[in-house]
Amino acid sequence: MRQDSLLSILNLRTRFRIYEGVVTAVDGVSLDVFRGETLGVVGESGCGKSVTALSILRLLASPPAEIQGEILFDGKNLLSMSLDEIRQIRGNSISMIFQEPMTSLNPVLTIGEQISEAIKLHQGVTRQEAWSKAVEMLRIVQIPSPDIRAREYPHKLSGGMRQRAMIAMALSCHPRLLLADEPTTALDVTIQAQIVELMERLKEEIRTSIVLITHNLGLIAEMAKRVVVMYMGKVVEEALVEDLFLEPLHPYTHGLLESIPWIGRKMKTGRKQLQEIPGMVPSLLEIPEGCRFHPRCSRLIDICRKEEPPLVQKDGRRVLCWLWK
């Protein structure tokens, strides 16, 4: 753990005991989030991004979830806290935005009620004060006529407006860490851009650190400074965003970058066909031996099939691959 680290995840392992067996959704993840920075987390669907975020706030039902490791927030281990202590942190110093603005707001409570209940809880203010703070938050996230909107139910708002309301809710207690799990995925492209702009601006104002979870590398490029790439529950690469884009070390990262269209890349590398990563993500119930990416890797060497690769430190970057040993 470094000095300026706000959140430090050490060897996080989250398992689900399900009927078919034990699924290790997060398998020994370690990462740091520094104060004031935006850390991007990318990876294909099912690689454990959401489970990592939910593990931080201990929002997974247990059973079936089992969490091991250490999650240090401001030096205190969230995983060994009592439920009451973790509740003090949820929505207060760490809050979360979810992917689906359609389903993550409660349909039978007004927007204002849903925002103000957290304010009332954590700031010990009266109902009325909490309500006016909620309206103020709606104004900050640029929802038109916020005092009227506060009295309305979520179904009256469009997807983009709901996500703004979610952001208002998440930021209402000025969290020091915001876990944003695919905050724009469910939205139209134009709305996405607005939400990104909003988050950028609020991040400066509130000076919060952000963990930005997405499979949208464009969003990472826009918002994050550092990025962590996950594959099947493991961090396979970590680097500064520009380093990662210029020179991906891990074959999986390479594949991810090849699979998206890049404005501007044409000029640098010439027109190139979009490449897909071959094969499918194997089931977590049948993790391949050796490097778990080897069935899909185009650069594998003999040892990849037999032994798990080590985590290699290289120029302040991390990569989980035999090639860099």
Binding site: L59, R87, R90, G91, N92, S95, S104, A118, M169
Partner: peptide, 16 residues
């Protein structure tokens, strides 16, 4: 449902 997770993520008591 997702909104239940949202409610928990705000730090509300389980009873609430």
């Amino acid at each position: 449902q997702d909104y239940t997770t949202t409610a928990r993520s705000k730090g509300l008591k389980e009873r609430v």
